[in-house]
Design a protein around this nucleic acid. Structure first.
Lengths: 140, 140
DNA sequence: GTAATTGCAAACAGTTTGCGCGCCC
DNA sequence: GGGCGCGCAAACTGTTTGCAATTAC
């Protein structure tokens, strides 16, 4: 908690309940969340609005605190921008999401940076497929 | 051309100018395109509407002819679903897109299929970073 | 002829923004 | 006290959908 206040100060951001709430929620979550999910959680603790959630998530992303994943469900998923972030595997039939631990792209990013001269700051990755249950269901 | 007609017949789809146009454009393009880009090209040849483009792209994707990439620009990029499809590297400053040949994820997909029991039908991948020019510009 | 396909316009969902009030430092 | 941050509602963007007219077969 206290460390999040420190984090905000370091980035010249005022300490507000919404900002702390978002950081808390994302810290507690084991997998990426979209704006609405975050809003639902944060608004349990603090009176806030979706607009604020979006604005704050945008700021945090620009500062490099969070990374964004554009999902095939049309929304953006947010998580802390650690080296060991993760991605989703989504069932195209039942829309169930499976959380894949560990992102396998760091080696690849390294190579692409060398080859293109880009400074890579993030990536978006999602797998889509059929979960075991839906494979059975659709076979029948 | 003729082969695209065959392709449509195989999938029980009627042969229409819009469908042929979309297949042509995507075949000629060296990199993924979004609905609006495709519409701009196809409508040069044939009178059509964005709605038709979206509907057709959706159909083709469901049939497995095309694959979709959800880009951080908020739109969906389409390309033929070949093993050797590709992805983008996008500059977060000037929005320039660099086209990365060869998708590096097939090995990984194989592994995930084994580990999760999912049947993976596609994925979405995009790298975001700063292009060499923008790195200089922002340093100055 | 008949069902699939289309165009149009309206509906939608997620996200962004303008503005005035209020809170953090 | 001054400016950053906020809530609200309205605007925007990409995409989807209902329906009547049209086309492919």
């Amino acid at each position: 908690m206290e460390s999040f206040k420190q984090l905000l100060r370091e980035h010249d951001l005022k300490i507000t309940p919404a900002r702390l709430g978002i950081l808390d929620i994302l810290h507690d979550s084991t997998s990426p969340m979209n704006a609405e999910e975050i809003y639902n959680e944060v608004s349990k603790e603090t009176h806030t609005s979706l607009a604020t959630i979006y604005r704050t998530l945008g700021q945090f992303s620009e500062l490099g605190l969070l990374m964004q994943d554009n999902s095939s469900d049309g929304s953006i998923y947010y998580q802390f921008a650690t080296d060991n972030h993760s991605h989703y595997l989504k069932c195209s039939n039942c829309n169930k999401r499976i959380h894949l631990e560990n992102c396998p792209l760091s080696d690849l990013e390294e190579r692409i940076q060398k080859e293109t001269g880009f400074k890579i700051t993030g990536h978006s990755l999602e797998f889509v497929g059929l979960c075991p249950e839906c494979q059975k269901e659709l076979q029948a």
